[in-house]
Amino acid sequence: MHSRKIRLSAVLLGGALITGALSVPVHAKVSEATSAEQVRTVQAEDSDATRAQSLAEIARTLPKVGPSDVLKLAESQIGIRENSLGGGTKFHEWYMSTDRARETVARDGGAIHHYANAPWCDMFVSWVGDQLGIRPVMGADAYTVEHAKWFERHGRWGTEPKPGAVVFFDWSGKKTIDGIDHVGFVVADNGNGTITTIEGNTDAGAVEKRIRPTWQVVGYGYPYYTAP
């Protein structure tokens, strides 16, 4: 399947489901009926809280995790496949159970169950961070564009393909965050214009290790790791 991220505004227009997701935990309880004004309030509070507490401060309260831990867990998921509808993985099930999904619905509209068969590359990345207890310093989303913007807002965005970095792709080769199609983890810089990655929701509908040309990379997000 094509792995482009479709924004999950999750509203039905002429019977067509439009899809996407969110960025950093706001620890605010929001309902599926949250108004636009309430959404703006929650987002403002989230921004204020982020400015008040740096990722470094947050990281000190979390498990000591490094790039090797992230890549080991990601690699252990290779081979997991989606169902014939493009979903049905444990990554979908996990995401729909989280506060993140509620926050996303508050941001984009729709309903949580719309994630059941949505594109899932960012759900996979977010699941890895959550399982290792570092979601607050890796971000979590189902919409790649917003996840990339989260890294950018936190000053954790760049152009170096470090192992354990979260890599964001635009298949057309444009270097704009709004054009991002896909996301995964960097395993290695191959030194020849390519990188080795681990990604969910590849065109085979699975978690796979891939070789990607760097001209397709928009940028890299750097989780705040506290171990080598």
Rank of each mutant, 00 (worst) to 15 (best):
M1N: 12
M1D: 14
H2S: 14
K5N: 15
L8S: 09
L13Q: 14
G14H: 15
G14P: 07
L22M: 09
V24C: 13
H27K: 13
E32H: 05
A33D: 12
A33W: 11
T34S: 12
A36T: 15
Q38M: 10
Q43I: 09
Q43M: 03
Q43K: 08
Q43H: 03
D48W: 11
T50W: 15
A52I: 06
A56P: 03
E57A: 09
I58K: 15
A59L: 05
A59N: 04
R60H: 04
R60P: 11
V65L: 03
S68H: 04
S68K: 12
D69W: 01
K72R: 14
K72F: 10
A74Y: 01
E82H: 09
S84E: 15
L85C: 08
G86F: 02
T89Y: 06
K90V: 14
W94N: 07
W94H: 09
Y95F: 15
S97H: 00
S97D: 04
R100P: 00
A101T: 06
A101G: 01
V105P: 02
V105L: 01
A106Y: 01
A106K: 07
G109D: 00
G110Q: 05
A111F: 03
I112C: 08
H113C: 08
H114R: 11
N117L: 00
W120V: 15
C121Q: 14
D122P: 07
G133T: 06
A140F: 09
A142D: 02
A142I: 03
Y143P: 00
V145P: 02
V145R: 05
V145W: 01
E146W: 09
A148Y: 03
G155I: 06
G155V: 09
W157S: 00
K162N: 04
K162Y: 05
V166G: 00
W171A: 13
S172V: 14
S172F: 13
K174S: 15
K175I: 15
K175T: 14
G179A: 15
I180C: 13
H182K: 11
G184E: 05
F185I: 04
V187Q: 15
G193V: 11
T194L: 01
T194Q: 07
T196E: 11
G200Y: 01
D203K: 15
G205M: 12
A206P: 02
A206T: 02
V207N: 04
V207R: 02
V207M: 10
E208R: 07
K209P: 10
W215T: 10
V217K: 06
V217R: 11
V217G: 04
G221I: 14
Y222A: 09
Y225M: 08
